Amino acid sequence: MDILVTGGAGFIGSHVLEKLQKVSEQSAEDIKVVVLDDLSNGSREHVPSGMELVVGDVRNRNVVEDVFSRHHFSAVIHLAAQTMVPVSVENPLLDCQVNLGGILRILEACRKWQVPHVLFSSSAAVYGDNLHIPLKESEPLCPMSPYGITKMTTEQYMRVYHELYGLDATVFRFANVYGERQGEKGEGGVVSIFCKLLSQGNPITVYGDGNQTRDFVYAGDIASAIVQALPLTGYHTINVSTGTETSINDLIRSFERAIGHKAEVQYASPRPGDIQRSVLSNKELIQTLHIKPEMTLEQGIARTYTWYKHPM
């Protein structure tokens, strides 16, 4: 079985590659993994030996067609994306070009070379500031940022390609993902930002009063869900979340337990496009894939902070 992972050298991608490698080692099935990544946010070191790394832009027709022509993929895990909400607010055109241009190039290649299954990394951002929490997959979508719009639009492309061309399509709506290797070449999420600052002995900045909430899910649990979904057929939309609402102030307290002392916190004005409350239901995840996130926030924060303090 050949699997293409776009953006596989990045943060979430690196965890997916680790999981695929373990599955390959533990099973009798021969799994060959190809990684397509332009390395703008990823690193060669994240790609295990034995996996093919193709350095290139997912929007580049020649690069994509060369990869697909040389392999008979059973599935494509599409993680390549512009992932930062603030960047999308500042530069919506770039966000659109990367996120929509990339997925359309992949979907067209899958249609041409008859790849049966595409798995896509969507986001809780598609829900917008919806207080009907925990948010189920059936909730109306109302993104508050260009980033959320491109994720929502990609979901619709996935649905249409399934209905028109018979492509099996799995959409994962990730909650707030954190873990080792996040933000190595960019701003990253709030957990990675806090990790960097606290590991250097610097104060952290909270945009807003700190009562805004998120559903923090460990990247290794995200990877488990993606790999578990490889055999799925049809069209599926699945939240990947803990189902637990955690305030930024509570997150800071978890960090303080990890570092062993109080953190210096500075509060600033809220940023445009940020959501006040967010927590996702994981009932569909449990029902469809028969798994749920295993990593607790306390364990995950301690593990992630330790990695940032002593990266390997």
Rank of each mutant, 00 (worst) to 15 (best):
M1Y: 10
D2Y: 08
I3T: 00
T6C: 06
T6L: 12
F11N: 02
G13T: 01
L17P: 00
K19L: 06
K22T: 05
K22A: 11
V23L: 14
V23K: 14
S24E: 14
Q26R: 08
S27E: 05
S27R: 14
A28M: 10
E29A: 12
E29C: 08
E29M: 07
D30P: 06
I31C: 08
I31H: 02
V33E: 03
N41Q: 10
R44Y: 05
R44W: 12
R44E: 13
H46E: 01
V47E: 05
G50E: 06
V54C: 04
V55R: 00
V55G: 03
D57C: 02
R59S: 10
N60D: 15
D66N: 13
D66A: 14
S69E: 11
R70L: 07
F73C: 14
F73Y: 15
A75P: 01
A81S: 15
Q82A: 14
T83E: 04
T83A: 12
V85G: 07
V89W: 03
E90A: 13
P92A: 08
P92D: 08
L93W: 13
L94T: 11
C96I: 07
V98I: 15
N99H: 08
I103T: 06
L104Y: 09
A109C: 10
R111P: 02
V115M: 08
V115T: 05
L119T: 04
L119I: 12
S121K: 00
S122W: 02
S123Y: 08
A124E: 13
A125G: 10
A125R: 13
N130K: 07
N130Q: 02
L131W: 12
H132D: 15
P134C: 11
K136W: 08
K136T: 14
P140T: 03
L141D: 07
P143W: 08
S145Q: 13
S145C: 10
P146C: 11
G148H: 05
M152G: 05
Y157K: 09
V160F: 11
V160N: 12
Y161M: 11
E163V: 01
Y165F: 15
Y165Q: 09
L167R: 06
D168C: 09
V171D: 07
V171Y: 05
A175K: 04
Y178W: 12
E180I: 04
K185N: 09
K185L: 11
K185M: 13
G186Q: 15
G189F: 10
G189S: 11
V190G: 06
I193C: 07
F194T: 02
L197K: 15
I204S: 13
T205M: 13
V206Y: 13
G210I: 03
G210Y: 10
R214I: 01
D215C: 14
G220Y: 11
G220Q: 09
I226K: 04
I226Y: 15
Q228A: 15
L230F: 08
P231I: 06
P231K: 11
I238T: 03
I238M: 00
S241T: 05
T242A: 06
T244L: 13
S247W: 02
D250K: 05
D250P: 03
I252F: 01
G260L: 00
G260K: 04
H261L: 04
E264T: 12
E264S: 11
Y267K: 07
P270Y: 02
R271G: 01
R277D: 05
S278N: 05
V279M: 04
L280Y: 03
L280A: 07
N282P: 02
N282H: 10
E284C: 03
L285H: 00
I286C: 00
Q287W: 00
T296Q: 01
R303Q: 10
T304N: 08
W307S: 02
K309N: 07
